[in-house]
């Protein structure tokens, strides 16, 4: 699958560009739309005073809440948008599935890559906010791309899994819409996770997305390298997701053309 993908890297690139163009070409604000959802969310959670959930014992107690929230919201938005776009992508690409033989994985993966543009814009906004609030940064920023590579692997695996599942069961897309909202509340996107029971704590500790977001925060806001122990759920999540997603996708993709 990997060799095939590599041979079709021009196709992956073209599909990604097409995705971005189609999404923004006819929008008056263009790429400015990309930052809109996380900004609105940050504003809403600020107004609702979610900042109070960060108690005095938290190392982020001194951080302006908007900065805290956006450092979580921007990478979360990439995750959510990628999957939102990738899940129905194969069904929407039915005409090209029937037209030629090519590695089908390029279709959902192009959606994940296209979402990187939104992420880039978001990162610029976060950088501007950090400067504005005089938040000092350090060498630990170098951890961000490394952690993001893990997040990207985790996202790509899920994108493969969900897009393939949606080929066979079209309600996967609806289930996903519900699941992503629940997932946001189970992840430390706009507040630190503080579960009420030890069992819930044990389960939520293994949330790969929380692991990535916490790592970004410690690297950006606390100037400390994320500990390997804290990143363990993220590494396990990325490996499992990519392995499972790749396996399911490779096994089921020969049947895609006849399922559409």
């Amino acid at each position: 699958m990997l060799r095939d993908l590599l041979a079709h890297r021009d196709l992956l690139w073209l599909l990604t560009v097409r995705e971005i163009r189609v999404r923004y070409a006819r929008a008056a604000l263009g790429v400015a739309w990309a930052i809109f959802p996380p900004l609105v969310m940050a504003a809403v959670f600020s107004v609702l005073n979610f900042g109070r959930l960060i108690d005095a014992t938290s190392p982020f107690h001194a951080t302006p809440y908007v900065v805290f929230a956006l450092v979580g919201l921007v990478p979360w938005a990439h995750f959510a948008t990628s999957l939102q776009q990738a899940t129905p992508s194969l069904v929407l690409a039915s005409s090209i599935l029937k037209k030629a033989s090519f590695p089908h994985a390029v279709v959902p993966l192009a959606r994940v890559l296209a979402a990187l543009l939104d992420l880039g814009v978001g990162v610029l906004v976060v950088a501007a906010l950090l400067a504005w609030n005089h938040v000092p940064v350090g060498a630990s920023l170098a951890a961000v791309p490394l952690v993001f590579a893990l997040q990207l692997a985790f996202t790509a695996g899920l994108a493969l899994l969900l897009s393939a599942a949606n080929m066979f069961f079209r309600d996967v897309n609806y289930l996903f819409q519900v699941a992503i909202v629940l997932a946001m509340f189970a992840t430390s996107v706009v507040y630190p996770i503080s579960p009420s029971s030890p069992l819930a704590a044990e389960v939520l500790r293994w949330n790969p997305m929380s692991s990535y977001l916490d790592a970004y925060r410690s690297a950006v806001l606390l100037r400390t390298w994320p500990s390997l122990a804290a990143l363990l759920p993220g590494v396990v999540g990325a490996v499992l997701s990519l392995g499972l997603g790749g396996y399911v996708f490779t096994r089921s993709s020969p049947r895609f053309a006849e399922e559409v």
Binding site: L15, R18, V22
Partner: peptide
């Protein structure tokens, strides 16, 4: 793709064929 130009579509279909 209806929203893409003829040129972009040609590129896409070509890429589909590897």
């Amino acid at each position: 793709h209806p929203d893409l130009s003829g040129r972009e579509n040609i590129e896409l279909v070509g890429a589909l064929h590897g």
